[in-house]
Amino acid sequence: MGYTWQYYDLVLLGVFASMATGFVVGTLTTVATTTSVTVCGLFAVAIIGHGLFVNGPVDAPEDLADPVEALN
């Protein structure tokens, strides 16, 4: 059975792709690399924000109150 892609795999891929795009644009065009990476970094922040707050890693807000067994 093969690997199945999960939502957070796509989040990580999106962050990498946006930062790599910023580097490539800065390298291959007249746009400064610092500017292009910063602008594309804002897209990465938006992707991370969506992964954390819109489609968070919990099923319900009540799951946030569950005790963490590894720390007990």
Rank of each mutant, 00 (worst) to 15 (best):
L10Q: 11
T21F: 04
Y7S: 12
T27N: 14
T38C: 07
H50M: 12
L12G: 15
A60M: 08
V37H: 03
A70S: 13
G56S: 12
F53K: 05
V37W: 01
T29F: 00
L71K: 10
L13N: 07
P61H: 11
G51W: 03
G22Y: 01
F16E: 05
N55K: 15
D59Y: 12
I48L: 15
L42I: 13
V31S: 06
M1Q: 13
G14N: 04
T35N: 13
G56D: 09
V58M: 13
M19D: 00
Y7I: 11
A44K: 00
V58W: 15
V25E: 00
V15H: 04
M19Y: 01
D59C: 11
T35E: 14
Q6G: 12
I47Q: 02
P61G: 12
V39W: 01
I48N: 04
F43W: 05
V25N: 01
E69R: 09
G49S: 10
A70Q: 10
I48K: 03
E69M: 07
S36E: 03
A70D: 11
T29S: 03
V54F: 14
G2P: 13
P67E: 10
V58C: 09
V37A: 00
F53I: 05
V25F: 04
L52R: 08
G56V: 05
A70V: 12
V25D: 01
M19C: 06
M19G: 01
L10P: 05
D66M: 08
L64K: 08
W5Q: 13
S36C: 07
N72F: 13
